[in-house]
């Protein structure tokens, strides 16, 4: 016998006059290999076509579908119902502007974050179309790629107590991104310049180190290591600001 699943789904459409947040229940029979991508689309197609949620790649690659699944932030498309109890509670990811129901505006948040930390390679030299590429050790390339794997899903922000308390907190995803640029020999920024963008309470010094972020990252990024790496570097930089003779 297949299980009968109950989905309790957060409903609220800020565009609809008079709409208020509430929880709506939908029932669905479990089938083999059912995941939340298939389940939510079935609910929408067969039961309530107005239900809002975001899927894009449906393969755990694009980061569109993060939501809180039975209390835990995760990617809906790669969550199988078999891993969950009969009752499945779905809430939108906190910390982001709500679009409607389970859809949140992670895009605007991440774009603003990337602008704040100036998330691009800083290099004064022009690109020379006739020159071969600058050599790089394969290991370095792989280390950069390792941190580049962040898919900006926002799970780490949804799970972070600091981010919930202060909306301007940059979060683990930003620290990971900065660590990625620090590693990259093509980015010519000095520690002083990194310090300007993350050496603050909204940045690395706001982090309480409880590591809610690392536990939920669907890409298993080594966020703990990156946070402490950035903290160490920026702590040192802060000290240099206080003790100017320690060298610039």
């Amino acid at each position: 016998m297949n299980r009968k699943l109950t989905f309790a789904i957060f409903r609220y459409n800020p565009q609809e006059p008079g709409s208020r947040p509430w929880m709506q229940e939908f029932r669905l029979e479990e089938t083999e290999n059912l995941n939340l991508f298939v389940a939510l689309n079935l609910v929408r197609e067969k039961q309530d076509p107005s239900l809002q949620f975001d899927f894009c790649c449906r393969a755990g690659i694009c980061g569109a579908c993060a939501m809180v699944i039975n209390g835990r932030p995760g990617l809906a498309c790669r969550t199988k119902t078999a891993e969950l109890p009969d009752k499945i509670v779905l809430m939108p990811l906190p910390g982001f502007r709500l679009g409607g129901d389970l859809s949140v505006d992670t895009g605007a948040w991440f774009r603003a974050m990337n602008a704040r930390i100036r998330s691009w390679i800083h290099n004064d030299e022009e690109f020379d179309p006739d020159a071969p590429e600058v050599v790089m050790d394969n290991q370095v390339a792989e280390q950069i790629y390792e941190l580049d794997r962040c898919i900006e899903c926002g799970c780490c922000i949804g799970a972070c107590a600091t981010a919930q308390m202060r909306s301007d907190f940059l979060g683990a995803a930003a620290m990971n991104r900065i660590a990625r640029f620090m590693l990259d020999p093509r980015d010519k920024r000095e520690n002083r310049e990194y310090f300007e963008v993350v050496g603050t309470e909204q940045g690395i010094f706001g982090c309480m180190g409880l590591l809610g972020c690392q536990d939920v990252c669907p890409k298993n990024l080594p966020l703990q290591d990156q946070l402490s790496h950035v903290r160490r570097k920026m702590g040192w930089q802060a000290l240099k600001k206080i003790l100017p003779w320690s060298g610039g």
């Binding site: 691009w120 690109f127 179309p129 590429e133 600058v134 050599v135 792989e142 990259d184």
Partner: peptide, 18 residues
């Protein structure tokens, strides 16, 4: 070839010859 080198210059971590 030019386009890929430009992507490299902009920061893509291409795997390298070992």
């Amino acid at each position: 070839p030019l386009a890929i080198r430009q992507m490299d210059y902009w920061g893509v971590p291409w795997n390298r010859v070992v």
